[in-house]
């Protein structure tokens, strides 16, 4: 193959498929960069703000749904929650509760009434 034809092959016109892929890629990159820039500007730094709710699981007698929500600006790791009902106490651990997200767990308690839950410890990410 001559040098000229090789160059010609390299500089060939883009096909419609290549244009489509290129435009789609640019659109994805722009959307992601705009989103990340938006989140960067609206990002409010601060410690984790953990809220814990425990409610009965209507489908299963004696089972409770534990929800931990993090409204802070930093994720929390190794979140330890204590759930108690009368003399009975259960410990639940969440690996991570990311900023702005919630995590759920199921707890089985044998007593009657409404269990109480509290955050025992966590690490800031």
């Amino acid at each position: 193959m001559s040098k000229g034809s090789a160059k010609g092959k390299l500089k060939r016109q883009r096909t419609a498929f290549e244009w489509t892929i290129l435009l789609a890629s640019v659109a994805v990159i722009v959307a992601i960069l705009i989103s990340l820039a938006f989140y960067s500007f609206s990002f409010k730094p601060g410690p984790p703000d953990l809220r814990v709710i425990v409610r009965p699981n209507s489908a299963e007698q004696g089972q409770y749904v534990l929800t931990v929500t993090n409204r802070g600006g930093t994720s929390a790791e190794d979140v330890a929650v204590e759930v108690s009902l009368g003399d009975e106490t259960q410990d639940v651990e969440f690996r991570v509760v990311a900023k702005g997200d919630s995590e759920e767990a199921r707890v089985v308690m044998s007593g009657d009434g409404q269990p109480q839950a509290r955050i025992k410890s966590y690490k800031e990410s």
């Binding site: 992601i32 960069l33 990340l36 820039a37 989140y39 960067s40 990002f43 730094p45 930093t74 994720s75 790791e77 690996r95 991570v96 990311a98 900023k99 997200d101 990410s125």
Partner: peptide, 16 residues
């Protein structure tokens, strides 16, 4: 999975 959800968006932008 953990760091993607916990890193500040500015740092992710810088990495990108």
């Amino acid at each position: 999975w953990v760091h993607g959800a916990t890193l500040a968006p500015t740092i992710i932008l810088l990495l990108l």
